[in-house]
Design a binder for these strands. Structure first.
Length: 573
RNA sequence: GCGUCCGUAGCUCAGGGGAUAGAGCAGGGGAUUUCUAAUCCCUUGGUCGCAGGUUCAAAUCCUGCCGGACGCACCA
């Protein structure tokens, strides 16, 4: 455990001491960073809130609070402003001490949680025999980032890719494999081939009702364990997964578990039986459903768990999954990273979980859609979903041509690696920097720009730092020693570094990596300003060491922060 | 019809009880014998959809309306 305390923690605890001496309630002791530097670095509204309770003048009360504050070791004298704000400005000596401590701390001043939880994060979840497409990227990128953040904060995280590997699509696929002429060949382009079969059989079905029955028969045979169909199903799953895995490898995303729908198949029938016996589920209009008579919003919206033809639904699998996870991991929390259109489904599912007596924290981490230039859900011109593979490749290709333009002399292999890091970094960052609930407009130009809040801008700051440090004789940045904060840009950079440690522990409260993106952008921005204003290699020895130490620390922070977003950094670009 | 989410600068978006509402892009003006200018500095630009209400304080919370996206029994 780190012994480092952030400025926010120190000021908060001092404020609470003061407030306690005055006999005021402790929960008034809230300190925040200021929105605008002209009000100092931190502020508290305690006096204004207390004034309300005590029926006193807020500015008088602020004066009284300041008299009880012991902050002379870390701030200039606190000031009173506006209606009764108390503003704190950190002293130079304190900032220097703090920033030095941060640089010596292995975790960069980012505390682990005091209450580690077991958290299951369910994300990505593509459908077998269908291509991964844009609809999966937000879940995949956001889920991975949340997993990384949660782990970094000391939680026990289990990531699970709940594959759609047992749907009705297999009736069509198996029929197609058996009866339709082979196309390109399964080995060559498996998902494409499976999709082709799926589409062709769907088209044929519309012309022939008898075919529909045959397709359905294949599905039933599969579900009853027919050897031939099972073998075909296994083959389709294997080949599809291998193609998905290429995407995950490219994105550097991995899962602890890959328990798809098929894993729960045998549990569904007994589950429905049990729910019926327990009176939790009832038969209605030929189907088996769960009603929520006491739920104000869902009293007329039942949760379907068995269709009238006997087939189970994804909701059925979800309940089985809930129970399996509970039995195996006893999670404190289960998070589903899944688009907002499925909100109703998850609210119902969580209601079922409560009926079953499960007490974990269930969260649907919803997100908006990615829109194309026409402001509609992003599609190809012909109206199909854009395949993930081609999207990733385009990101890499576009980044490659920029690298090629800027640095044609880099070795070919390095250019390709840089293109991958920049292209995919840009794609991930463009997604994560948005508030997750907003539908956002997809734009290659914006995400790959080196100006503004983009991954390449942050990566470029890192690359500048690496370039400086390479020109240093010693690579031991700790040996550079303490940092002196003379220039305004040095101070402002140091403060930003300190504040990232204050932000990261809060990211999971609302599952909002965009807050980290903004903080990292500001960090890079402040570094660039510092870089312009403060020469390093040309400075005299003591200044040079100090500034390089600040730069090195910035580099570590950028790398760590980007890593939490699942984004890599290149050495040069 | 019911429900969820959204409406902030010309454009793309932050901010989700606190101070004079911010950033990027675009527009205008500057900085380069480079520590990678892939950058930095300055600047123009806003009845925060509309109307009420709560509060010492509302872009933020509540109600209604207008406009948009997405859901709402046998797909996932």
């Amino acid at each position: 455990m780190s012994t480092y305390s952030t400025p926010l923690e120190i000021l908060t605890s001092r404020l609470r001491q003061g407030i306690q001496e005055m006999g005021l309630p402790l929960d008034l002791g809230v300190v925040t960073s200021t929105a605008n530097p002209r009000f100092g670095d931190y502020q508290t509204n305690a006096a204004m809130v207390a004034a309300k309770i005590l029926q006193k003048n807020p500015r008088d009360l602020a004066r009284e609070i300041i008299e009880h504050l012991q902050v002379d070791d870390c701030c200039e004298a606190p000031t009173i402003a506006g209606a009764g704000f108390i503003n704190f400005s950190l002293s130079k000596a304190f900032l220097e001490t703090q920033i030095r401590a941060l640089s010596l701390d292995g975790r960069l001043g980012i505390a682990k949680t005091d209450h580690p939880k077991t958290i299951i994060i369910d994300f990505s979840s593509p459908n077998i025999a269908k291509p991964m497409h844009v609809g999966h990227i937000r879940s995949t990128i956001l889920g991975e980032s949340l997993a990384r953040i949660a782990r970094f904060l000391g939680h026990h995280v289990i990531t699970d890719n709940h594959l759609g590997d047992w749907g009705t699509q297999f009736g069509k696929v198996i029929y197609g494999l058996k009866h339709l002429p082979a196309g390109k060949g399964l080995e060559e382009a498996p998902v494409q081939e499976l999709v082709r079969l799926y589409r062709e059989v769907t088209a044929l079905e519309e012309q022939s009702p008898t075919l529909k029955a045959k397709v359905r028969e294949e599905l039933v045979k599969l579900q009853h364990g027919d050897q031939e169909n099972l073998a075909l199903w296994k083959k389709a799953v294997k080949l599809s997964w291998e193609e998905f895995e290429k995407h995950y490898e490219l994105l550097q995303i991995s899962f602890d578990e890959r328990l798809g729908e098929s894993f729960y198949h045998d549990a569904l029938e007994p589950l429905v039986h049990r729910l019926l016996e327990q009176g939790i589920a009832t038969k209605s209009e030929g189907a088996v459903v769960i009603f929520f008579p006491n739920h104000p919003a869902f009293h007329d919206k039942p949760f379907l768990i068995q269709k009238s033809d006997g087939a189970f639904l994804y909701g059925t699998t979800d309940i089985a999954t809930l129970e399996y996870r509970e039995a195996r991991w006893h999670p404190d929390a289960v998070w589903y990273v899944c688009g907002s259109p499925q909100q109703l489904h998850f609210e119902q599912l969580f209601s079922v979980a409560r009926i079953l007596g499960l007490t974990s924290e269930f969260r649907h981490i919803a997100f908006g859609s990615i829109l194309g230039e026409d402001r509609k859900m992003m599609k190809t011109r012909s109206g199909d979903n854009i395949e993930l593979g081609s999207l990733l490749q385009e990101a890499i290709d576009r980044a490659y041509s920029i690298v090629q333009e800027k640095n044609p002399n880099f070795p070919e292999e390095e250019k390709q690696e840089i293109a991958r890091i920049i292209g995919l970094g840009a794609l991930k960052y463009a997604d994560l920097m948005q508030h997750r609930m907003t539908d956002y407009l997809f734009s290659w130009e914006k995400m790959l720009s080196f100006q503004g809040n983009t991954a390449p801008y942050l990566q470029n700051a890192y690359v500048r730092i690496r370039s400086l440090l390479r020109k240093q004789e010693t690579q031991d940045t700790h040996a550079l020693g303490p940092m002196v904060l003379e220039e305004p840009t040095e101070r402002s950079l140091a403060l930003q570094l300190l504040q990232i440690g204050e932000i990261i522990p809060t990211l999971l409260e609302d599952a909002r990596p965009n807050i980290l993106c903004l903080a990292l952008y500001e960090l890079a921005n402040k570094f660039h300003a510092f870089y312009e204003a403060c020469p390093m290699l040309k400075a005299q020895e003591s200044t040079k060491k100090s500034r390089l130490a600040l730069a090195a620390l910035t580099g570590r922070m950028l790398q760590t922060g980007l890593e939490l977003l699942g984004i890599q950094v290149p050495e040069r670009m």
